[in-house]
Structure formats: structure tokens, C-alpha cells
Amino acid sequence: MSTSTSSTAGGERTVPDPSVIAGERGHLTNLAYRLLGSLAEAEDAVQETYARWYAMSRQQQEAIESPGAWLTTVAGRICLDVLGSARARRERYVGEWIPEPLPDRTEWIGGPDGGGSPDPVDPADRVTLDESVNMAFLVVLEAMTPAERVAFILHDVFRYPFAEIARIVGRTPAACRQLATSARRRVGAARIPTAPAAGQARLVRDFKEAWEAKDIRTLVGLLAPDAAMIADGGGLVGAALRPVEGSERIAQYLIHIADKAPGLTLLERSVNGRPGLVAQHTGVTVTVAAFELTGDRVTRIWAVRNPEKLRPWTETGRD
């Protein structure tokens, strides 16, 4: 770690290099998004983490042996608190709550300030898109207790030892190990499918073309009989308040949407690292859809319509 030094009566003390402190932002953003499932909340947690660092005196900062570890610990604790309060908030949420979808790294627009700037976001602030952020995985994480989620993500995704996790969660290392084991069982029970990206892209393209053609028979054939579509409008825009279940009902619902919104444009885009669809109306992104695919059928559709969750997509979807 890069540091500078200053002489004191007791000898030399290390002063954390500001660039090193700032360089932790990408790691903290990746961690916080996986813990919270919300980019906006993750950015707030990271900002609060830095606020606490810079609120300390220089002497307090110098006394910290590993600033990176300190920042991770503080961010983890903040996220744990947010998860606790989020459970109550989401009980009052209008309709279904879906994690915030993320575009491909090359299309991410607007930085943490949320200003919707057309300038690409700093690469350090982008979330790395891997299996730990695909929508099916994030939905399973939502069913975990806050402590389970923190222990599991820190250990299984970021490879932190349980001794360090214990300091964040406020439990013993043995208890944190049990939390991670319980969370791992939840993930295993969910049987999250993993299909080759190429096959997924073809299936999503076929789905898009059938929707555009209002071909209800083809849509039904592409959907698993027990498929479900979950929409998140947050009470801000129209969206089904409960899951739409069954291939016939989903297909009819999609055709109804197409009839109600003439001129809707569908674009094939990466959503949380997997093939998905973006719907635009008069050039504005109105829906981002993530898919769970099993074999050659669509088993789940998560349609995010809440405009507050579409901020990173404000100017994406350009050809």
C-alpha cells in the first residue's frame, strides 16, 4: 500500500495516500451493490463510508494499520444496517420489489452523483458483472436475513475470512460460518440455472421477435408452462402488483402491453451480465427485463419499470 510519512516525537508514522483511499471506491461499490441489490443505496453506503473516514483526524487515520480493511468493515456495517431497515421499507413498497438492474459496462451512463450525465461513468465506479450479480442470484439473496447475506457475500464472493466477517457482523467467527452455510443452502435450493450465453441470447432474441410480431402462440411456446413474470413499478408507473403466472397469461399480458403502447421499441441488451431486453418509448427507457432461462424455455421474467431504478439506463440502448 502506498503511504507517505511524517516525523513525530515517537518516530515515523504512515499517512495513508489519498489516491490509495480513493482507489478503494470500486471495491466498495461492488461489495455494497451485492449486499444491497440497489445501486443507489450502494452509492449512498460508499459515500457514507468515505464521509466517516474523512471525518477522522489525521492522527486517527494514521493509527489505522490497513485503511482498505477499515473502509470495508465500515461499509459492511453500514450495509448491514441498511438491510435491516430495508426489510421494513420493502414491506411498504407498492407491488413487487426487484433488485436494481445494471447495464453492460460499456453502456453504463451517469456516475454516482445521479446527474444523468451523458459522460461515461468512471470505470472505478462500475460494478463488475459476474454470476454474483445475475438477477436470479440477487433475488435469492433477498430471501436471506441481513446477517446471512453479509456473511455469505463477504466469504463466498469476496473470500474474506470469518474472523474479519465477525468484526463486521458482530458475531463469532463460528456463528458467521453457520450464517454462510445457511445462505449457501438457500442458493443451492434455488437451483439457479446456468446456460451458455450464446443459447440465452438466441432465446431472448426469439422472444423479442415474437413479442414484436404479437405472435401469442410463439410466445407461449417460448415460455415454460409454469413461468412467472414479476414487474416492479414502485407505485410510480403502471405495473402488475402481483406476479403474472403461466405461459398463456404472460403472453396475453405482453400482447396487451404492446397494444397499449404503440411505438414501443425493444432492444437486446445485457442486463446484469446476462442477455435481456430494454423497452423504450419515444426514445426513453421505460422497462428493463431480465430473464431466467432453463433449457429452451423462459422460466422467469423480472421487468423493472420503476424509473428510479433505471437511472444507469437513461441514455443506454443506443444503436
Rank of each mutant, 00 (worst) to 15 (best):
V74C: 08
A75S: 13
R77Q: 11
C79A: 09
C79I: 04
L83Q: 03
A86N: 08
A86S: 11
R87I: 04
R87L: 06
R89L: 13
R90C: 02
R92Q: 15
E96R: 12
E96G: 06
W97C: 04
I98L: 10
P99G: 03
E100L: 01
L102F: 04
P103Q: 03
P103W: 08
D104I: 06
R105I: 11
R105W: 13
E107C: 08
W108T: 02
W108R: 07
G110E: 03
G110V: 01
G111F: 07
G111R: 11
G111C: 10
P112M: 13
G114N: 05
G115R: 10
G115D: 13
G116D: 00
S117C: 05
D119A: 14
P120V: 01
V121K: 14
D122K: 06
D125H: 10
D125S: 09
R126H: 07
R126G: 02
V127G: 02
T128R: 10
D130R: 07
E131K: 13
E131Q: 15
E131H: 14
N134I: 11
N134W: 14
M135D: 04
A136V: 01
M144K: 01
T145R: 08
T145A: 09
R149S: 01
R149I: 00
V150K: 07
F152I: 04
F152H: 10
F152M: 05
I153F: 01
L154I: 03
H155K: 07
H155I: 06
D156W: 15
D156C: 14
